[in-house]
Design a protein around this nucleic acid. Sequence first.
DNA 1: TCCAACTCCAACGTTTGGGTTGGAAACCAC
DNA 2: GTGGTTTCCAACCCAAACGTTGGAGTTGGA
Lengths: 228, 228
Amino acid sequence: MLSGMAWNTAETKRRLKESAVAEFAAHGLGGTTMERIARRAGINKERLYTYFGDKSRLFATVLADELNKVAAAVPLDSLDGPEAVAAYAAAVYDYHAEHPELTRLLLWEGLLDLPEVPDEDSRTDYYRTKVTAFTRAQQANLISDDIPAADLAFLILALAGWWYAVPQMARMMHADDPATPDTAREALMRAAAKLATSASPWSRRGGRGRGLRDRDGEQGGGEQDDEI
Amino acid sequence: MLSGMAWNTAETKRRLKESAVAEFAAHGLGGTTMERIARRAGINKERLYTYFGDKSRLFATVLADELNKVAAAVPLDSLDGPEAVAAYAAAVYDYHAEHPELTRLLLWEGLLDLPEVPDEDSRTDYYRTKVTAFTRAQQANLISDDIPAADLAFLILALAGWWYAVPQMARMMHADDPATPDTAREALMRAAAKLATSASPWSRRGGRGRGLRDRDGEQGGGEQDDEI
DNA sequence: TCCAACTCCAACGTTTGGGTTGGAAACCAC
DNA sequence: GTGGTTTCCAACCCAAACGTTGGAGTTGGA
């Protein structure tokens, strides 16, 4: 229109994707309309189809993009102890705070329960590196190994992500004593550190639930029985 | 049709709600159609509108119903120690396993981020009782108090719920060593117990188990501040 | 028996929205 | 310029789905 600017495919694509991230994150796959994505980007709807295929392919593209971003933004190379685990948890939490779209896209994807997720291989690799970092730290006795590395890594992400997954629950549960992002972060770090620290041998008491044996025998000191 | 049975409002409503739970849980608010809810229930679409108002009101009704069910199904009265916390986490996990609809509805609600959630007051009360149980256990030195009760309760739910929130992540993260529901449950219980146990003052280098000097298991009372 | 109230449904009106098309404007050789 | 290619868009098609309506079957009371 008013531009002397030439066509700019790359920029058009970028703007469309940016817009799509926002819309999909806000309304999910079902709740988002191609029309609105296009309008928000100030670009014709038809461009979406020629560039990205149909709606679900666009969703997949956009999600894969965001995952690549987070992979780059929150690296995890090595863990030298529980504090490092806590720091990692906090970094994930912070990233989510600044980029709430990612969590939301992931959650929406989870709710779709597709048999195969887009980009599965590279994503699996991505998670594998995380798990490996935990495994190595466990093998080096730098963090506790009483929870398997994959589970531990997964649960750390749970602690960091749950706030954004069910904000309404977070709000209601803290009704009497509102949680600021900071107190939440604090609690998260403490919790992450605890998970990564070897458990003190708590007395097992009465048999609610099964399991929860100490894997590798007792450690060091005496078993200690606490009665109420 | 073939029935001599008279009209039965209550039963009709029940069947519609049952159907609505399934559809909403599976496809979310945006992805569900009133038509399909009605068809699944074998009842005319129009009944939905006269009984429940429009689609979003139906969603709210259904969600509130499910929450009441879970409140009744997974009670939490008192916690007499970390193992009770683990047992509670496992109970929540098991409930979710048997009733995946609830988690999904909650997640979808979270993603909608409505300004006010339906039934807010009674739900807040419900969570308050949970938090109170943790608070009391902390005050009685039965579980660790180094994480505020509300945060602790919330994080326990995170551990139990994350598996269902992002199943695709769970799967990919355990690609090398698939997690069965049982191993997940085991890890969850262990983690929950750890969060509820006073942190052993981890050695500067976070050595694990064997080398743990320092009497373990000193609970609650002592406050230990550690910068992370 | 008649009528008012209630339960249910088939069919309809209308809007929304995914996806397409025909063509205009810009660019790029040659 | 001229033809071919690419970028873009207004307008369109059509299926799906929200919500409604008119009416038919059912009940219960006066």
